[in-house]
Design a protein around this nucleic acid. Structure first.
Length: 574
RNA sequence: CGGGCCGUAGCGCAGUCUGGUAGCGCGACUGGUUUGGGACCAGUAGGUCGGAGGUUCGAAUCCUCUCGGCCCGACCA
């Protein structure tokens, strides 16, 4: 490939709307061009990168027996109604919907559980045909509330999603393990530093799930991990061991104290000397939405700890929760914000508490009366016994649930997610096969996703320097470039073309930079584009001397033309 | 959707407060000189100042509405 024949348009300045390194660099190097918020054109060099990554994904999935298919992007509403997800996705505003000429409602697929389940249900009738595993690599559409960070969170993006269908749980466990192995090989091969973490299964539902996280400061997810035990989890899911709060001792008589304008835990610590946050229980009111009802609910948490809203949603089996508004709080508790508590809480407000409060005596809490708090509150004696759940947000520094050593925190970019769905969709959609006993049985499903356009961006978050991108070899647009510094000079043309041909013969993915531009500009351009190995044919071409650059680390050296092929292969690790 | 902010040439920006000839840098084009770190000289093209309405003798500038976009929060590959 001659670079003079590819449209390469690099910018000198970072685009104003880019925040993170990968977005700045990909836009500046002309790899992506925005056409609307979260919607991008992939230029030839970027498309080469995506195709290379997709090919790695295909090879590793095929190796585990998965089969690639092509699924429709336009999907009928009925399919989504049948799984029960139409309303939720439309209400959340995440679905692109449209009507055809007859007025039938359709959507652009944000994910493909429905289509795939319908396909397999139609084709698979017997346990003898199982297990099967299908995947696709295609555009997905989600009308993200806030598209951002270039390719990281687009509204149209490329995703691989795979779906496994098994006869029973054991089959699913095996399918899941295979996919996990394949995922590890995929991310190993493309040269990113990643961690597999326990994850919440969120809107997709199901039992177990793990996320593949590329560690990067710009990551939108927060993860906790332990070097000692290998425990790692998304904070949404993470658990921890906690140092015990000071003991409350024998139950003492309830006391009510006037606490005008004292509303926060910090203010209470100052107001009641000797009472530390660990002896307090804060009561936070949430507006909770279920499928067919909504209600304000009180949630108690130890004063020095925080509530994990994802755990709260799961504990309540709710669709969403949000903090109650000031008005909702007044209506539910009868008091101003800052004085909610379990004591005197109206019976129609459900009461939950975190495990950290289980068995704790003589608490300091609010009592639903503006300007008052209670001391020596004992749950079950002075108020209803709340229903105890694990609702606490784990934090760095707390003990690893496995080893007890302090947990560390990092930011991560979610590039892959694997789920054990179970029978959630197959039951909803009545997707069954005949088991050995001749009984219709729902498929036991798994689903598995990889962000195909996101992963290369994530790779750049880990591999760049002040000069530009530093592509890992496996997904670089080209492995090597042979650049002539002055295409008008015959000896440079001749030597560059000779080296180019030689490297092609050696199966190197090489391009020839024959563009007419000043040497300085060419150096800058190729540094920005980040081809891993760069060979410059310049003024010493007549003597058979060229320059050799390994982009990572910018080590530059001169060598004889005859050594080039060997040096390139060595630098590429072959 | 809530909170902050921005729309002026292909890109990055100034001009807006205080109304009066629409500017700068980069890029592009032509000619010439260059050819090892985004070259130099001379010249050229390119803008309904996001859109609509209003105030005014006069609006990029003031007012109203609207459409885009960005950033901070809740969703996700």
């Amino acid at each position: 490939m001659r670079l003079s024949q590819i449209l390469i348009s690099t910018l000198r300045d970072d685009p104003a709307d880019a925040e993170i390194p990968s977005h700045k660099l990909l836009a500046r190097a002309g790899f992506v061009v925005k056409i609307a918020a979260g919607v991008y054109t992939f230029a030839p060099l970027m498309w080469r990168v995506v195709k290379k990554f997709a090919q790695i994904v295909r090879e590793e999935l095929d190796r585990e027996g998965a089969n690639e298919v092509m699924l429709p992007i336009i999907q009928p509403k009925e399919l989504w109604v049948s799984s029960g997800r139409w309303d939720r996705y439309v209400t959340d505003g995440i679905m692109f919907t449209l009507k055809d000429r007859k007025g039938s409602e359709m959507c652009l697929g944000p994910t493909h559980e429905e289509v795939m389940t319908a396909y397999v249900n139609a084709q698979v009738n017997s346990y003898k045909q199982l297990p099967v595993n299908f995947y696709q690599i295609q555009d997905k559409f989600r009308d993200e509330i806030r598209p951002r960070f270039g390719l990281m969170r687009g509204r149209e993006f490329i995703m691989m999603d795979a779906y496994s269908f098994d006869a029973d749980q054991q089959g699913l466990d095996e399918a899941y393990a295979k996919m996990r192995r394949a995922y590890c090989r995929i991310f190993d091969r493309c040269g990113v530093d990643y961690t597999v973490v326990q994850a919440d299964s969120g809107a997709i539902g199901g039992a177990g799930s793990e996320e593949f996280m590329v560690i990067a400061d710009s990551g939108e997810d927060s993860i906790l991990f332990c070097r000692d035990s290998g425990y790692a989890a998304n904070v949404e899911k993470a658990q921890s061991r906690l140092p015990a709060a000071p003991a409350g001792g024998e139950a003492k008589p309830l006391e009510k104290h006037a606490t005008p304008d004292v509303k926060t835990v910090a203010q209470l610590e100052a107001f009641f000397p000797g009472w530390v946050a660990g002896r307090m229980a804060k009561t936070v009111l949430y507006h909770v939405t279920w499928k067919s009802k909504e209600k304000v609910t009180a949630v108690m948490m130890r004063g020095d700890l925080e509530i994990n809203e994802v755990k709260l949603v799961n504990a309540l089996d709710a669709l969403t929760v949000r903090l109650a508004t000031e008005d909702e709080i007044k209506k539910a508790t009868g008091a101003e914000v800052g004085f909610a508590g379990p004591v005197g809480l109206p019976d129609d407000v459900p009461l939950l508490a975190d495990e950290s409060l289980h068995g704790v005596t003589n608490l300091l809490t609010g009592c639903n009366q503006t300007g008052y708090h209670c001391l020596n509150v004992n749950l079950g004696r002075d108020c209803r016994m709340p229903s105890f759940k694990e609702l606490r947000l784990a934090r760095a520094g707390e003990g690893c649930p496995v080893s007890g050593k302090p947990l560390e925190q990092a930011r991560g970019i979610e590039v892959g997610h694997i789920f054990k769905l179970g029978t959630k969709y197959s039951k909803a959609m009545a997707a069954t096969f005949m088991d050995q006993g001749g009984k219709p049985t729902p498929f036991v499903m798994g689903c598995y996703g990889i962000g195909v356009s996101r992963t290369p961006a994530a790779a750049i978050e880990q591999h760049f320097d002040d000069k530009g991108m530093v592509w890992p070899v496996a997904i670089a647009p080209f492995e090597c470039v042979v650049a002539m510094l002055d295409p008008k000079r015959d000896e440079q043309q001749a030597l560059a073309q000779q080296l180019y041909a030689q490297l092609q013969k050696a199966s190197v993915d090489v391009c020839l930079d024959d563009r007419a531009m000043s040497p300085g500009a060419k150096f800058k351009d190729l540094e920005l584009i980040g081809v891993p190995v760069q060979v410059f044919v310049g003024r010493k071409a007549g003597e058979g001397q060229v320059e050799f650059l390994v982009r990572k680390g910018m080590q530059k050296s001169e060598c004889q033309a005859g050594e080039v092929a060997a040096k390139v292969l060595a630098a590429l690790g072959r």
